[in-house]
């Protein structure tokens, strides 16, 4: 607990706090607790999301991301803690909160017996849009999400990526000010993932606040103004992507050698190199991974006639974050 708090404070200071003072908060939560029977899932969570920004909750499977989203979006009651969303208290002004938010959950929430167009129409009707308005909005959304061609097909026939897109399009009907996206790109192919990222960026450009959960560090890095790392119901770090990355080992190049002699020689030639934790023929050398710096490393080894069996450039992922912040890898958390 104390380690977690100090890590959070350490990064929470600087630029993040400045930003809060200048902009209003879209979401504030303090002391969130939630347990299923005797299993504690959220253990005193504090969150603050500035209006018009992307906040990413990063964590492995089972960390409590979905539970956090459920609690923030009125789907579930927290056992303790206070939450304000769009300026309204979640417990006492539930209706006002619901009117202000849009939620795309982890699992697609589309009506499978309706077509894409009918699903959007259903949302427009429930939002009380008049028919002219809704026809225009639905047309625009279908276009934006590249679903116009499949609009008249039942959504059961959609691929996973299309269903996700329809799901998000349904969330956008009525232009909610704050949008929650629970692992919007998990299980998507690279192309659909990029489309999803573009859509998120466009929403932010229009002034929408986005609360995004993800298991991917690179996704949080690309999209978020602020990242909070969740581990077993507690925040273990919080800050801008740059602040967070300062805390974790950066990208590095991995060299594999065929013989111990060459490995030892390389270790002498490259002073920054460290041994791999498991494989004693592998070295890690901090590097930005760019062609120039990789070539210079290879040149140095070549100058000493050290043969490299293979090399790879490694950028930090969620595992590195967890190892650095908790001393465990996220895969262990999952197990």
């Amino acid at each position: 607990m104390s380690a977690a708090v100090s890590a959070a404070c350490q990064v929470g200071g600087g630029a993040g706090a400045e930003a809060h003072r200048m902009t209003s908060s879209a979401i504030t939560a303090s002391g969130l607790r939630k347990a299923y029977k005797d299993k504690v899932v959220l253990d005193g969570l504090d969150l603050e999301v500035a209006a018009g920004t992307v906040f990413s909750l990063l964590g492995p499977n089972g960390a409590g991301k979905t539970t956090t989203v459920n609690v923030l979006t009125t789907l579930m009651k927290a056992d303790a803690g206070t939450i304000r969303v769009a300026g309204h208290d979640v417990a006492t002004e539930t209706k006002a909160v619901r009117a202000a938010i849009g939620v795309t959950g982890q699992f697609a929430a589309v009506d499978e017996l309706l077509t894409g167009q009918e699903n959007l129409q259903l949302m427009a009707d429930l939002k009380g849009l008049d028919s002219g308005q809704s026809r225009r909005i639905i047309g625009d959304l279908l276009e934006q999400f590249d679903l116009t061609e499949s609009a008249q097909k039942l959504s059961t026939t959609y691929s996973g990526g299309m269903r996700r897109k329809l799901d998000l399009a349904m969330t956008l009907v009525g232009k909610p000010k704050i949008i929650f996206l629970d692992e919007p790109t998990t299980g998507l192919d690279p192309r659909s993932r990029r489309t999803m990222w573009d859509i998120i960026r466009q929403l932010v450009a229009e002034g929408t606040t986005i609360f995004l959960t993800t298991q991917y560090l690179d996704e949080a890095d690309r999209l978020a103004d602020k990242i909070a790392v969740l581990d077993q119901g507690k925040l273990v770090a919080e800050g801008t992507p740059a602040e967070l990355k300062r805390q974790i080992p950066g990208s590095h190049v991995r060299f594999r050698f065929t013989e111990v002699a060459e490995f030892d020689a390389a270790l002498r030639v490259l002073p920054d190199a460290t041994r791999d934790a498991e494989d004693d023929l592998i070295l890690h050398v901090p590097s930005d991974g760019g062609a120039k710096s990789v070539r210079s490393l290879l040149d140095q080894l070549d100058a000493h006639s050290i043969d490299v069996d293979e090399f790879s450039v490694h950028t930090p992922d969620l595992d590195d974050v967890f190892l650095a912040l908790t001393g465990r890898t996220s895969t262990k958390v999952e197990a």
Binding site: V103, A109, M170
Partner: peptide, 13 residues
């Protein structure tokens, strides 16, 4: 049991 109810539940309806 299918996801759609979660969508309805977080809407102001």
């Amino acid at each position: 049991t299918k996801g759609i109810i979660n969508r309805f539940k977080v809407m102001d309806i």
